[in-house]
Write a protein that binds this DNA or RNA. Structure first.
Length: 264
DNA sequence: ATGGTAGCGTAGCTA
């Protein structure tokens, strides 16, 4: 079983790129973030034609939007709402083996890492607190769950190109890292990507559009994650971050797909 | 300290 997550930054603009990824990498389940379209305009048929006939989507005009596209049947398709908003950031569904799949898009949080000055940063921290409390309340570490998505936080020193230079930059501040680790502990989540990659090795899933040459400067961050609960850890087989997709032209997403394979 | 690019939708917000 292969699961993948990708912040696609407009699924309509890049539907051919999604199809290319499906055909070349054959994920069983593909979770998308920043689809940026209301559900009536989501290109369902393009993906159904490739076998992804099971689709749980939740989008809105212009911003945000999440989708789970699957070759495996989905049940219990649900929408989760946080911080008093319905801004299309979290959906979940259940696979035939009872594994619960969560697709999340955590707010980027604006530029200023101060909840007094920046309500977008406050929203980000609130969402992390609410989701942590939600999972704590379920106390179900023993059930099979996968959490994937653009969590917009790079928690480890080597999840960013310069730990020191990014300590004050939203996505890598100590308060965000603390909230993300609290979320990780809330349900006994294991980082399925770092399970395979040593913590002293640089690892990125996002490179800014604003860098002149993303490849040469290589100032990336690991914002996209795949986490699993304890029962799935023994089944972890391998991981891959598809760096080359950052160059898929002519208009790539600024994020690349992250994949995890499981022994079936 | 600043600005750089991108998508949506056609101004300005969000990233």
């Amino acid at each position: 079983m292969r699961i993948a997550t990708w912040n696609i930054n407009s699924v309509r603009l890049r539907q051919d790129m999604v199809k290319r990824f499906m055909q070349e990498y054959q994920p069983d389940v593909l979770c998308l973030q920043e689809t940026k379209t209301p559900d009536e305009f989501f290109p369902r048929n393009a993906f159904a034609e490739l076998g992804y006939t099971h689709q749980h989507i939740h989008g809105m005009k212009s911003y945000n939007g999440v989708a789970i596209l699957s070759r495996l049947p989905l049940s219990n398709c649900s929408i989760a709402r946080w911080a008093g908003k319905d801004d299309c950031r979290h959906i979940h569904a259940t696979l035939p083996d009872d594994t619960e799949v969560h697709c999340m898009y955590v707010p980027a949080g604006g530029d200023i890492p101060d909840i007094e000055q920046n309500e977008k940063f406050a929203h980000k921290l609130q969402l992390l607190d609410e989701t942590s409390n939600w999972w704590k309340g379920q106390s179900a570490h023993h059930t099979r769950k996968i959490l994937v998505g653009d969590l917009n936080i790079a928690p480890l020193e080597h999840d960013v190109w310069s730990h020191k230079q990014l300590l004050d930059v939203v996505s890598h501040t100590p308060i965000e890292v603390e909230k993300l680790l609290n979320l990780q502990q809330s349900n006994g989540w294991h980082d399925a990507v770092r399970h395979f990659v040593p913590h002293d090795q640089k690892l990125y899933s996002w490179w800014s559009y604003r860098a002149g040459d993303w490849e040469a400067s290589n100032r990336g961050r690991r914002l996209d994650h795949i986490w699993v609960t304890a029962p799935l850890v023994p089944s972890l087989k391998s991981t891959r971050i598809l760096r080359e997709a950052r160059g898929w032209g002519p208009k790539p997403s600024d994020h690349v797909p992250v994949m995890v394979d499981f022994h079936s």
